[in-house]
Design a protein around this nucleic acid. Structure first.
Length: 954
DNA sequence: TACATCACG
DNA sequence: GACGTACGTGATGTAC
């Protein structure tokens, strides 16, 4: 390869240039990964090519980085191999390849050849055998071998000259990693596999023996034969019996998993010599598939492909430029064939006018603002970009200064580049941005709307608005992230320039306003272009995906609601925070001294590592458990357990930790966020982060302000109303349990909600068979734990550990719960199978929530996903109810003649700032909206309070 | 940067 | 037989 000397960053140790090094790529792994990672794509002739695209992309990237002298991609040739002669069930219930994948195999071999890389395959042998054989042959010639695969079946090949490279984690797999996976050294892996078997490949193994047990046995007896010979003397009767009666099965299994390193080499090793691709052949292949973005990235779309180079065309043609006859279009679902750039830098009215005209003509324009900060309320507008058609976008710099470091003492001072005045640009753009006949498309519109509505930026009220981030989130919450770069790669097959690439990172970062105009244009106009293309690709999916109403009526309307809440902010009493901080500090000093005395020496109380060593190594307290990193666990549950046994040290540490948390996160963190201009804190609500439809809140997070302890509540009381106002808090009561009663249609729970009873007391009476007046605090506490546990998919084990009762008792409580409340168990099972079959569950209002990992093979991961699937409709349904209330609230208040401002949302609570004279009327209005926003089988209930501060209002 | 911890619903 | 064990977030400090 031409770049064989390039530093091999993904290999653990640099390989000397002269040293022969063979890279063997497990082709099947790449194909499988590409096929499942990418959405369906087809060529214009209908041939599916998503796996081809992914494979070509991955291989191309790999080839620019690897450091081998020799390289080959190894494929499986056929399903039937010599292993089927040994055991006819081998890989028997492997499903056939999906039909869309079948035609792609040949194209993938073509891609490999186009890169100038040898394809290796042989009838009757698996890729793994050939990999083993080439590794053996190459090693014999004195070379090093790297196998690009994370397949555990290849781990048996690891030895000093042979390593695996995990292509996902980009991490080498050597003896320690194998030891971690199988519990034995690589040379014993086949013995462990022979015992443990492998259900995916139908390798039988010995029933009842898993990897852990197998490793222990092999480490004790050396290898399979040693173990089988010693089997009659094994103590555990079941295990002895299993080994004795399945000895032959284990021997067969070992043959199945042992790779045939003596397989014939279909091509001599010399032919694997790495060499650069012939540009013509590669470009030809990429062009045939329509992989324009890859052609572009590899610089092959210039001279090498003159017939597809963009011809000059009218700058503002009303429709897309037509493709030259005989060429293919981009392979992505929304085939936008225009290239990404070059774009125009607009520096005067004459340059801007055609874009405004084109936007009006098209009725749609993508808009993106460039600023110098992520904080929309403080950011300065540096420039604006517009896109009016795919590939047709401009950047309007407004406040670009001179680039740094261009001047020296002998030259004149650097000058700012020529650009439009902000006033002129705003004057020209404001009518367009406020024109009801022109749709403005933005990505994360809330940010740009917040910047543009500020008076110093012209007070522009952008409308109407579409938001590609929210369009994506409405359909694909939980499926993937919704950032522009990720969506572009996923849906357009295009990797946009990143902000970091333009401004640099760390110390070298320069403000966007100092980025040279050509670079700024390439970045900013591309973002508008990408936004417009995403809109064209994603918006049409809304209706077929049954997400149109959700997007139009909830998500889109939330933009302005949240914008106004963020702008409003909430007042924080900084002087009170200071007093709280001083008080906490003083108490921490005392506690710290006492803790050091109890420990017998000073140490950093804030270090869990040091604390664990003192508690469990030095003082030998009982109940220590190590985490995965080998450090002692010292979280609150552990310390509380120790404290309850009378130990002073953990009790004091718990108190110290509480104060430390409150002080650093809330007292100091919050004080730093107070805007000096209005003494208020302005959070940023994230609309497309959570997998369930909830909002999240950052910088500062105002959704986790303390309340559960008295010390924490002091913080909450520092959130105050303006003079003449109060804070009014409205909470949905038991909203998730109401959704449970609704969804599972549980008669007793419905009746309790209907009558306004305490739901946990009702549950206690129901499952413990008590009369209502027999329910004591303990019974209610247990019932409450169960009620919440159910919504979280809790197991008997979890309930037992939370209630501190034996697992058997927990099991019988859960049994009573399910039998007393018919419908709930069925609903839980239904949610799990819905998630398994469709990949998503839905809220009662129809929002799809995708469940990641529901198909995972690993039981732990799948278990997590199943619990997430159970919880998602409740959490997500509640989120949707409160969002509906929020979008109706401003109008309801306005029509009632009320001037209350909505300030915060905390999942099931809304916080308002209300003039004292309007308290009662506002409470009534808020209640009306919140309780009428959904018609369930149970009533919705809002609990409302008010006071001079948030602590009292709650 | 990863992990542990802990604040909230 | 093994493996984990209640969902969803964001901020902070320590240690690597």
């Amino acid at each position: 390869m031409a770049d064989a000397a390039v530093s091999p960053e993904i290999l653990a140790e640099p390989v000397k240039e002269a040293e022969p090094h063979l890279i063997l790529v497990d082709g099947s792994g790449y194909i499988f990964r590409a096929f499942h990672a990418l959405p369906p794509m087809t060529r214009p002739d209908g041939v599916p090519v998503n796996a081809v695209f992914g494979f070509t992309n991955m291989l191309g990237q790999f080839l620019t980085r690897h450091a081998g002298t020799h390289i080959a991609v190894v494929f499986d040739a056929s399903r039937v191999t010599f292993r089927n002669a040994i055991y006819d069930q081998y890989k028997a219930h492997r499903p056939e390849a999906p039909p869309e994948l079948v035609p792609q195999f040949a194209l993938i071999r073509e891609a490999t050849a186009a890169y100038g890389v040898a394809c290796i395959e042989l009838d009757g042998y698996e890729a793994d055998d050939l990999i083993g054989a080439y590794a053996k042959g190459f090693e014999a010639l004195g070379g090093q071998v790297t196998i690009v695969s994370s397949d555990k079946d290849l781990m048996q090949l690891v030895r000093p000259g042979v390593q695996l490279l995990d292509p996902i984690k980009q991490k080498p797999i050597r003896e320690p990693e194998v030891l971690e996976k199988f519990g034995v050294t690589p040379d014993k892996v086949v013995d462990v596999q022979a015992l443990a078997g492998d259900s995916t490949d139908n390798v039988p193994g010995v029933p009842g023996i898993g990897i852990k047990t197998a490793a222990a046995l092999i480490n004790e007896y050396g290898d399979l034969e040693g173990l089988l010979a010693a089997a009659p003397g094994i103590k555990q009767p079941k295990r002895r019996e299993a080994l004795l009666s399945n000895a032959e099965l284990a021997r067969i299994s070992k043959k199945l998993v042992t790779l045939d390193c003596d397989a014939p080499l279909p091509r001599p090793i010399d032919e694997l010599l790495a060499r650069p691709p012939e540009p013509g052949r590669l470009a030809g292949f990429l062009r045939e598939q329509g992989f324009r973005s890859l052609l572009h990235r590899m610089g092959l779309d210039g001279d090498a492909a003159p017939e597809t180079a963009p011809v000059s065309r009218p700058r503002f043609a009303p429709q897309l430029p037509e493709a030259a006859p005989g060429t293919v279009t981009e392979i992505t679902p929304a085939a936008d064939e225009a290239p990404f750039g070059p774009y125009e830098t607009v520096v005067d009215e004459a340059g801007l006018a055609p874009f405004i005209a084109a936007a009006r003509e098209a009725g749609v324009v993508a808009v993106d603002t460039e600023t110098d900060s992520l904080d929309a309320l403080h950011a300065n507008l540096v420039g604006i970009s517009l896109a009016v058609a795919p590939g047709k976008a401009c950047y309007i710099p407004l406040r670009h200064g001179p680039p740094p470091g261009t001047g020296d003492m002998l030259q004149e001072a650097p000058v700012a580049p020529a650009q439009m005045s902000q006033e002129a640009a705003i004057a020209a753009l404001k009518p367009l941005l406020e024109d009801p006949a022109v749709m403005k498309v933005l990505h994360n519109a809330k940010y740009d709307l917040e910047v543009l509505c500020r008076a110093e930026h012209g007070g522009i009220a952008v409308s109407p608005v579409d938001d590609t981030m929210l369009i994506s989130y409405s359909m694909d919450a939980g499926r993937h992230g919704h950032g522009m770069d990720e969506l572009s790669l996923r849906h357009l097959g295009h990797r946009p320039i990143t902000y970091d690439e333009v401004t640099g990172t760390g110390r070298a970062r320069i403000p966007f306003g100092q980025v040279a105009l050509d670079k700024a244009t390439a970045y900013a106009a591309e973002d508008a272009d990408v936004t417009l293309r995403l809109w064209r690709a994603l918006k049409p999916r809304l209706r077929p995906d049954q997400a149109l109403a959700l997007y139009e009526q909830v998500e889109r309307r939330m933009i302005a609601v949240l914008r106004d809440m963020e702008i409003a902010g909430i007042k924080v009493d900084g002087a009170e925070l200071t007093r709280i901080g001083e008080d906490f500090s003083a108490r921490m000093v005392v506690l710290e001294k006492e803790i050091h005395e109890l420990a017998g020496k000073p140490f950093n109380v804030g270090s869990p590592k040091q604390l664990g060593e003192i508690l469990f190594d030095e003082q030998k307290l009982p109940g220590g458990k190590r985490g995965k990193a080998g450090a002692w666990g010292t979280d609150a549950a552990v310390l509380e357990d120790l404290a309850s046994r009378g130990h002073e040290l953990p009790r004091k540490v718990l108190h110290w930790r509480q104060l430390a948390k409150l002080k650093s996160t809330y007292v100091e963190g919050l004080a730093a966020q107070i805007d000096p201009r209005d003494k208020r804190v302005h959070t940023d609500f994230s609309m497309a982060i959570t997998s369930t439809g909830r909002l999240s809140s950052t910088e500062p997070n105002l959704q986790n302000i303390p309340i559960r302890t008295e010390e924490g509540a002091r913080i909450r009381r520092a959130f105050v109303a303006e003079p003449g106002h109060v804070l009014l808090a409205a909470d949905y009561s038991q909203i998730e349990l109401r959704l449970l009663a609704h969804l599972a249609d549980v008669p007793s729970l419905r009746e309790a909600f209907e009558k306004g009873e305490d739901i946990h007391s009702r549950t206690a009476a129901d499952i413990f068979n008590l009369a209502p007046d027999q329910v004591d605090r303990e019974a209610r506490r247990r019932a409450k734990t169960i009620n919440f546990g159910i919504i979280y998919g809790m197991s008997a084990f979890g309930l037992a550990s939370r209630l501190g009762i034996p697992a058997a008792e927990a099991r019988s409580i859960i049994e009573a719960y399910f039998s007393r409340y018919p419908g709930i168990l069925e609903e839980m099972e239904r949610l799990k199978s819905e998630a398994r079959e469709k990949g998503y569950v839905t809220t009662p209002f129809g929002r799809k929530l995708w469940i990641d990992g529901i198909q995972a093979k690993e039981q732990a991961r799948r278990g997590n996903a199943e619990r997430a699937a159970i919880n998602a409709p409740f959490q997500g349904g509640a989120a949707e109810i409160i969002k509906r209330a929020m979008v109706r609230m401003p109008r309801a208040l306005r029509e009632a003649g009320l001037s209350a401002r909505m300030l915060l949302q905390v999942h099931d609570e809304l916080l308002f700032e209300v003039p004292e004279a309007e308290i009662e009327a506002t409470a009534e209005c808020v209640r009306q909206v919140m309780e009428s926003v959904a018609e369930l089988r149970v009533p919705l209930k809002a609990e409302i309070g008010h006071g001079p501060n948030w602590g009292v209002a709650h």
